[in-house]
Write a protein that binds this DNA or RNA. Structure first.
Lengths: 311, 311
DNA sequence: CTGTTAGCGCCTTCAA
DNA sequence: TTGAAGGCGCTAACAG
């Protein structure tokens, strides 16, 4: 089934059908109606390949997922982003490509990178929008307000009367973690944290980092962790050495992952919406593809403190 | 850059380049080498749209994700499947489509359905492989050995000396849950469960279902839950009424989700590999697309008992 | 406002 | 073993 057949049924030419299908102006209402009813009655769907070949768009965008570091706790983030992306693509198709990105024949590219490097499709000359702030490079991105979330966490621990707080900062090359810690420091103002130690994005690494911190600074009464995964390790370690959470030590995480809700005690954390992130990034890319002007280079989405039992 | 330019550089015709690119036999080694070096030096990539239009394939498959029920705990499953799929597609592109599937221009279709209904793309006349057994319909599918996993769980509780076990069975229209419970019953042999109650796939629903079960059967010493999410609710409820896990009551879940490892006590559960599931389904679809004969209608992947603290 | 025309880049007979 | 030629279904000028 092709344009030709639709045109014949509607009693017009191929071009006219094409015009209607593409929403061009300059088609009389009567003609348009005739074409639309023909399309509907035949259940006609345009051939995407022919469309791409003749036109200038492919109507598909690539979603490049970088999977560099340990990802145990990132699954929910990824599905959330994907969900948001597919719903924000406005009819375009999303092709998923995994790490060494070799995508072609796409109109644009969305990159979900959880580290700060740029796993950018090489030799790809289409608009790109990153999900998550890159540590360097002038590309457009959408990110959660990690800095603001860090501020929320900091103010919360201050409000709880915690005066000697440690920070399990995550990896220094993960922009989200860097920003979270920066925000946290800002909230503490003149009284800096009792200690800031980097760690990997796993509970085990969080536990080990906290053990090291407590060895040198035993009187800590609060811990801010750059992710929930780290916080879960921190809580586990604290309980293993007989410290009560939150009575002796308050713990705050970041992400509002499922794990944060099921662990004991349930984690106070900062929520970000992966779905909004994906949706907004898709929107930004589509806007660029449709030629909108004066688009923001970066978009930052609000985060929110969720108070539970650990603080 | 197109075939023409490559042909010119290699000193042959377009047809010959096309033959080399598509691996047709009947090209002299010398010619083939010349073409390949031209392709490499120009970094030529065929235009996918033109290829689809002229040929008979699109080299892309749809991944249809059905999101019917509460999905809080399914994220890891989905990303696992997706990861497996993309790596099993052998160069083909994966387009993701969400629930009301309206995909076209694909060679085949992978459907990830977590309920038993068939959210099948209507009017799609391409091969389909389901990830997860459908409750009805004669479509090809790949599934975890939920029945076998249920057997493992049952034997385990028997070996632990548990004689009065309850079952939180999940929804009756989710094939995976149905199979898990069937396997569990089989392992118990002549001594049936003390009670089997359906519930939704959430911790809260699991807690409520267990409360109801305990009301009528207070002397239960073991609980098998169709998913980890349900098990987490069960554990929470048991502890809230002062029962010790596992001393008073053993609890076994299913899925080996992240939540199972971080909750207290850590859950004994049955592991399935979402990645293997996706990879195998992709393999099965590709095999059908490449014309392989005598393919199995269903493929079942082994599951594995993971013993932790809750039993 | 509508129809005619010329390709888009590739695969695939058919000849040579 | 290779080349020439036609056409896949559509869009985008260009006429009328």
């Amino acid at each position: 089934m092709n344009l030709e057949e639709v045109a014949r049924l509607a009693g017009v030419s191929r071009s006219t059908v094409s015009r209607v299908l593409n929403g061009s102006s300059g088609v009389s209402p009567a003609t348009r109606a005739a074409v639309e009813s023909a399309v509907a009655s035949m259940r006609y769907l345009p051939n995407q390949a022919a469309r791409s070949l003749a036109g200038t768009r492919t109507d598909t965008v690539a979603v490049v997922v970088s999977e560099v570091h340990d990802r145990v706790f990132d699954d929910a983030f990824l599905t959330g982003v994907l969900r948001g992306v597919t719903s924000g693509l406005d009819g375009r198709r999303a092709v998923v490509a995994v790490n060494p990105p070799s995508v072609s024949d796409v109109d644009g590219c969305l990159v979900v990178s959880m580290d700060g490097h740029d796993p950018l499709p090489r030799g790809l000359s289409v608009p790109v929008v990153l999900v998550g702030r890159p540590l360097s490079g002038g590309l457009a991105y959408v990110d959660s307000d990690n800095l603001g979330g860090g501020v929320l966490a900091g103010r919360h621990l201050v409000a709880r009367g915690r005066a000697r707080v440690g920070v399990l900062a995550g990896p220094p090359d993960v922009a989200a973690c860097v920003d979270r810690v920066a925000g946290f420091r800002r909230a503490l103002g003149g009284s800096p944290p009792a200690g800031v130690v980097p760690c990997a994005l796993t509970p085990d690494s969080g536990a080990a980092a906290l053990a090291g911190l407590l060895a040198s600074t035993p009187d800590i009464d609060g811990v801010f962790c750059a992710t929930d995964a780290i916080a879960i390790g921190a809580v586990r370690y604290l309980r293993s050495v007989g410290a009560r959470v939150p009575e002796d030590v308050s713990v705050v995480g970041f992400d509002d992952s499922v794990a944060a809700t099921v662990c004991t005690p349930a984690l106070t954390t900062v929520r970000q919406s992966a779905e909004d992130l994906g949706n907004t990034a898709a929107w930004r890319l589509v806007a660029e593809l449709t030629g909108e002007q004066d688009l923001p280079q970066s978009i930052v989405l609000a985060t929110e403190l969720v108070i539970r039992e650990s603080s």
